[in-house]
Each structure stands twice: as C-alpha cells, then as structure tokens.
Amino acid sequence: MNIFIILGMGAAVGFLSGMFGVGGGFLITPLLIFYNIPPIVAVATGANQVVASSISGAITHFRRGSLDIKLGTVLLVGGLLGATAGIWLFALLRRLGQLDLVISLLYVVLLGVVGVLMLFESVNALRRAAKNQPVNLRKPGHHNWVHGLPLKMRFKKSKIYLSVIPVVVLGFAIGVLTSIMGVGGGFIMVPAMIYLLRIPTNVVVGTSLFQIIFVTAYTTVMQAATNNSVDIVLAFILMVAGVIGAQYGVRVGQRLRGEQLRALLALLVLAVGLRLAVDLVVTPEDFYSIVSAGTGR
C-alpha cells in the first residue's frame, strides 16, 4: 500500500466533496476497492472517514442552530436500528461468500440511479437557464401520501406536524446503507427529506449531518467489534487528506455554476458505477479463491 496514493485519493475525494457539498463516502469506498483494498475493509474504513468529514460541517450547523434535534433524534433511532440490521446482514453475507458481490451490486445500482437522476436534473436546469425560463420550484407545505400516516409528532424547529413512521423508515434505510456500503447517505437523505417529507431546506442539511455522524460512528465501532475490518491508519490518512482537500474544493465550487457542477458530479458518479459494473461482468483471471475461517487467529 502506497501512502502517497492513499493521500492523493483522500485529497481528491475531499476536494470533490467540498466542491459539490457531499460527504464523499460513496466515492471513497469504490476507489479503495479499485485499489485492491478488500471491500470489507473499504466499507468499514469508509464509514470511519465519513465521521471526520461530516463533523466539521455539522459544527457549523450546530453553531448556527440550523438543525432540528428532535427530528434528528427520530431519524437517528431509525438509523441505529438500520445499522444494527445492516451489520448483521454484512456478517451473514460474508459467511456466505457473497459480501463483495452485494457491495459492488449495491454501488452499481445506487451510483447508476443517482448519477442518471442528477444528470437529467442538471441538464434540464442548464436548458432552462439557456432559455431564461424561471426555475419551477415546488411549493413547500404541499401535502402528499406521507402526510396521511398515523403516529404524528410536532417538530417545532422544522415547523412541521409529521408522522414518525416515514422518518424512522428513512433513518433505517440510511442506516442499512451506512453499514453495508460505508456511506453517510446524505445524497439520498437530503432529497428524501426535502421532496418526500417536505421538511424546510434550512434545517435539512444540519439535521441529516446530525444523523450521519452518530450512525457512522456507531457503524465504525460495530464493524470493528464484529468484523475487525476498520483500518485505523488507512482511515486517518484518508480523513486528514480529505478535510484539507475539502477546503480547496469549497473555494473552487463557489466560482463555478451549480448546474454545471452537478452535471460534472453526475458524470463522475456514473463513471465510478460503470467501472464497478465492468468488474462484475469481465471474466475473472482466476475462478477460484481461498478464504480462511479465522478460527486460527
């Protein structure tokens, strides 16, 4: 393992995450897999790295008070349950020898869907901008089926009266993704909170970061305890390079236009997903592999 390649990887992903305002976990884990780090280590180490990259962002939101602690706690309850289920599933898939495959497949599906959606959205926005059409924003407070669910709770900070069921389910789904894929899951949680739960945008990022920090921290400890798969040195190099890279990314990002940025990120996401898909389809050099049960350790 070359320390400079790892540093470069961390800095590049940090730069991108600063530029696009994303956590970067969904890029770090595939990159580590491309660098022949075992997927089981890449996922656990990725989750650890997300703790560091989310905290500096979250501190800013805590200071400004732009988060809903009550909503975040409900999300977190779902997240911790989801992460626990995910860790269990992770260990089961490992025993069955299907872990690497499932991680790759999930990444191909997730990166493919997110990449295509982002690309369409940003291309449409670019077209609108070219024709000088006003952006067609959906009205907040507009209700959908989610708001007809029972067990409603009042979230004062968000000024919303909402059933806890969709919140816990969303948190749970993100928790599963965190433990199996090593991502924070912000890139799914933020759009879901805005478009599905209709939570005001000003608290969405801070609240999702609140959930992400605790779920990724919990996942890191659980991965270390059950699979011994956290590489503390690898994670530390990645997070130091990442937080520095992010600072430069933010500066560059402020100078570029949002739609172009999102189109670029979409292409990058699609490229990473495509590479993983190719690796699944190409005939392997060797059909056989050996794994040890680990009882001798």
Binding site: N48, Q49, V51, A52, S53, S54, I55, S56, I59, T60, A217, T220, V221, M222, Q223, A224, A225, T226, N228, V230, I232, A235, F236, M239, V240, V243, I244, A246, Q247, R297
Partner: peptide, 28 residues
C-alpha cells in the same frame, strides 16, 4: 489491537475521526 480489543479499537477510531474533523473546523 484490532483483534484483541475490538470495541476499544473502534471507539478510538471514532475519537480520532471526531478530533480530525473538529480540528479542521477550527483551523479552517
């Protein structure tokens, strides 16, 4: 250490990450 004290190892990994993130937010 990862095999002998897995839980403390995991907690240490989280503390290290939290410190890195916190220090970065102060420095920058």
């Amino acid at each position: 250490a990862a095999y002998a004290n897995p839980v403390s190892y995991g907690i240490l990994a989280v503390i290290l990450a939290a410190l890195t993130g916190w220090i970065a937010s102060i420095v920058f």
